[in-house]
């Protein structure tokens, strides 16, 4: 049997408090169960205080990988915030990168206080489109709010990733291990959020195919 030893590099980025660390753990656990060698690199510490956060998830069939994705080597980006998508792509993106990006911005403190301007959303999206081969913009915050559970944003985005087909990770493997990562009373809402994420990206993909 031949080993497909290609490295896959995925980055989950967002703003501190959006739940990207848990999302990365879930992805990594599923990959580990599927038999891959997986490494997750997290930036920790000041993450609660509104800074940029990114979890690097890297895997292959054989051989331990270091925790950081080398520059320009990103295969898949999951961004919980559009400006953070640009930040990651500026260093790690390449012509082949596929991305799932939440549409809703979170204003940096420098924007709130008037020192900087958040880019025009249409222009930002256009920029992300230019920097990716495939781009799915997801209304993930709106979906999480519809569920009255803003914290479920990360599950919506994971669902969107699962629905995108950008990785070969099996959907049912996500839902199966969800219960060991979220408190019991939140399992149902997270599962629902995950499914709504799948639907959101499936709908966009269908649109693409039609046009």
């Amino acid at each position: 049997m031949t080993i497909n030893n290609k490295v896959t590099n995925l980055i989950i980025t967002g703003v501190g408090g959006q739940g990207n660390v848990l999302a990365a753990r879930l992805v990594a656990s599923v990959l580990l169960e599927e038999g891959y060698e997986v490494t997750v690199g997290d930036v920790y510490g000041l993450t609660q205080r509104g800074g940029s956060v990114a979890s690097h998830v890297r895997w292959r069939e054989k051989g331990t990988l270091p925790p950081l994705v080398p520059s320009r080597s990103l295969d898949i980006l999951v961004a919980f915030e559009p400006l953070e998508a640009l930040r990651v792509l500026s260093r790690y993106g390449n012509e082949k990168t596929a991305a799932v990006v939440n549409e809703t911005p979170i204003m940096p403190i420098g924007v709130q206080t008037g020192r900087f301007h958040y880019p025009n959303l249409a222009e930002l999206q256009e920029g992300l489109d230019l920097l990716t081969e495939k781009l799915l913009m997801i209304k993930a915050t709106a979906i999480a709010r519809e569920l009255k559970q803003l914290q479920a944003l990360n599950m919506v985005m994971l669902g969107a990733l699962a629905g995108s087909g950008f990785t070969a990770i099996k959907r049912e493997n996500f839902t199966r291990i969800l219960h060991s990562y979220v408190p019991k009373k939140f399992v149902d809402i997270n599962r629902k959020a995950f499914e709504m994420g799948i639907n959101a990206s499936s709908l966009i993909l269908e649109d693409y195919r039609r046009n």
Binding site: V15, L46, Q48, R49, G50, G51, S52, R72, L83, E84, L86, R87, L89, S90, G93, N94, E95, P108, I109, G110, V111, F116, H117, Y118, P119, E123, L124, G127, L130, L131
Partner: peptide, 22 residues
């Protein structure tokens, strides 16, 4: 050309996200 493009987009749009009190 990718690096060139990303450099251009970054300099025109990417604002820093400084830390703040919760």
């Amino acid at each position: 050309s990718y690096s060139e493009l990303s450099g251009k987009l970054t300099s025109s749009m990417l604002v820093p996200r400084e830390l703040s009190f919760c």
